[in-house]
Design a protein around this nucleic acid. Structure first.
Length: 515
DNA sequence: CAGTGTTCCC
């Protein structure tokens, strides 16, 4: 039986089957179509991609008697999505013509692979004027392009670049749809400018669950719990249905300022009022909320009562709480379990070792480091980055490869001398090493965020805040150090660690030392 | 009837 003449109907059928996960039935229909056109082929290729059958997709693409730009776009996007960005790029270069969708697929491929520079480069390379190619497509960056690039800016903390894209959007009348606004809020939030994020939120014509959840999440990570609750109230008044992710933001908002009861209320509200089933993320937030506030036993009980398998992240959250509250006994139990689960994750060893150090139990801390060495577990280096004149500079703990190394160390030493005169004394308990005090102090004094701060003081405008992004959590000593820098050098510093933001100004931090 | 984009536990 054949479907001659019915190519349009057959194509719709193929698409339908593939969208339901029944790609093999789709393929049967495809095989019986006599007069297959390029759209029919594309639908089948895309159908394989949707079902994760990348090998068959590429095989069918290679068999195609005729291809248009969409055919190529499908496979470029497919390779980008499965992390084969090199293959995506070679197809992108090989294709006879590219439209805006081809460029967008390639840009997002780079972003997903973490190659932010390449993504930015491609954005700049895009023909900015309307070029009429063989299929008449527009290759000017559009709203999809900016949404693909903005998360990279947020990830890097590249505020200048993000602001430049925002102005590009306005200059070129790129449509400010809900995706663009959401991406802008996220970018500004992650780059430390919560005011700009709020402005975009207030001006957004259309507000949906994504946009509001993003705003709540941003306010949460900046420690602005009341404002986050306000956005949630707005959602309820406006009839915008909260999602499980909205509640992740609300729970984080509570845990960052220690609002235990309100957090528990939100947790219960999820299922009671909104029929949302708490996921492992929500339990993770709850453990953090309880543990950080000192309710370690309750946090432990929460983990034990979770309806799903506790992910290592949840245990790690409890271990962090043990560090804050110096509970060595529970920390040992949790860490041993974690090390069993993830023997190669350096974080667990380092955290327990830091807990021993904080308790003055240097022998045990040293023993743990020995175990790390024996198992070949490498300590993840602390890395801080700072954006100056549109470039992002990275610093590592004890970094000695920067071209302006000498100048940076001299500046840092001057800052340290000045702060010591004001009463700063390095908190050596934050150091992992069981070496003598002097060496311990050296390790601590050259933590990556201190190097980045020195570089910032050296290179940025005196009025602007110094914005730093760190890959790990800021240590006690750096936290004290930054507070003092803000006081005695009259500069505000905005530091994002892997957990939240710290806004330092005039000797204090926005986290009120609750972290 | 095919191809590009947004939030989330450490």
């Amino acid at each position: 039986m054949g479907f001659g003449g019915l190519v349009i109907a057959s194509t719709a059928l193929i698409d339908m089957y593939c969208c339901c996960g029944m790609w093999s039935v789709g393929r049967e229909v495809f095989d019986r179509v006599c007069d297959r056109d390029v759209i029919c082929w594309n639908t089948m290729v895309a159908g394989y991609v949707k079902n994760g059958n990348f090998f068959s997709a590429k095989e069918l693409f290679d068999e195609m008697p005729e291809r248009n730009v969409s055919s190529w776009n499908t496979v470029v996007d497919m390779y980008g999505k499965c992390g084969e960005v090199g293959l995506a790029r070679s197809l992108f270069d090989e294709m006879p013509a590219r439209d805006v969708i081809s460029w967008n697929a390639m840009v997002s491929g780079y972003v997903k692979d973490g190659e932010c520079d390449a993504a930015r480069g491609l954005f700049d390379e895009m023909p900015k004027r309307n070029v009429v190619s063989w299929n008449g497509s527009d290759v000017k960056p559009n709203e999809v392009t900016v949404v693909a690039v903005l998360p990279a800016c947020g990830h890097l903390g590249a505020l200048d670049l993000g602001q430049w894209i925002h102005s590009y959007i306005r200059r070129n009348r790129v449509k400010m749809d809900v995706y663009v606004n959401t991406a802008l809020i996220d970018m500004y939030g992650k780059c430390g400018s919560v005011e700009d994020a709020r402005r975009v939120f207030d001006n957004a014509e259309m507000k949906d669950t994504f946009l509001c959840s993003t705003m709540i999440e941003v306010l949460a990570m900046h420690g602005k719990a009341d404002e986050a609750f306000g956005v949630f109230d707005y959602m309820r008044r406006a009839g915008i249905k909260p999602s499980d992710i909205t509640f992740v933001g609300l729970l984080k908002a509570c845990s960052h300022v220690g609002l235990v009861e309100i957090g528990v209320e939100y947790f219960e509200m999820m299922s009671k009022d909104f029929e949302l089933v708490p996921k492992v993320e929500h339990y993770g937030c709850l453990v953090d909320l309880l543990g950080r506030a000192g309710h370690l036993e309750k946090a432990y009980e929460t983990i034990k009562s979770m309806p799903m398998e506790p992910h290592p992240i949840v245990w790690g959250t409890l271990l962090s709480a043990c560090r804050i509250h110096c509970n060595v006994k529970l920390a040992e139990e949790v860490a041993l379990h974690l090390i069993e689960l993830e023997p190669q994750n350096c974080g667990h060893y380092v955290l327990l070792s830091n807990i021993y150090s904080k308790a003055g139990r240097w022998n045990e801390a040293a023993k743990l480091r020995k175990i790390m060495k024996e198992k070949g577990v490498m300590k993840k280096p602390g890395c801080s980055s700072i954006e100056v004149d549109n470039s992002v500079y990275e610093f590592f703990a004890g970094d000695c490869v920067h071209p302006r190394r000498k100048e940076i160390y001299e500046t840092l030493d001057k800052i340290i001398t000045r702060l010591k005169a004001e009463g700063y004394s390095p908190k050596t308990s934050s150091a992992l090493h069981d070496v003598d005090i002097d060496e311990k102090e050296q390790t601590l004094l050259y933590h990556s965020e201190k190097l980045a701060a020195a570089f910032g003081l050296l290179n940025t405008n005196h009025k602007a805040p110094i914005r730093i992004v760190k890959n790990l959590r800021i240590c006690d000593d750096c936290h004290v150090f930054m507070k003092m820098v803000s006081k005695y050098f009259g500069r505000s510093l905005i530091i994002r660690d892997c957990n939240r933001f710290h806004h330092f100004s005039d000797g204090s931090c926005s986290c009120c030392d609750y972290w």
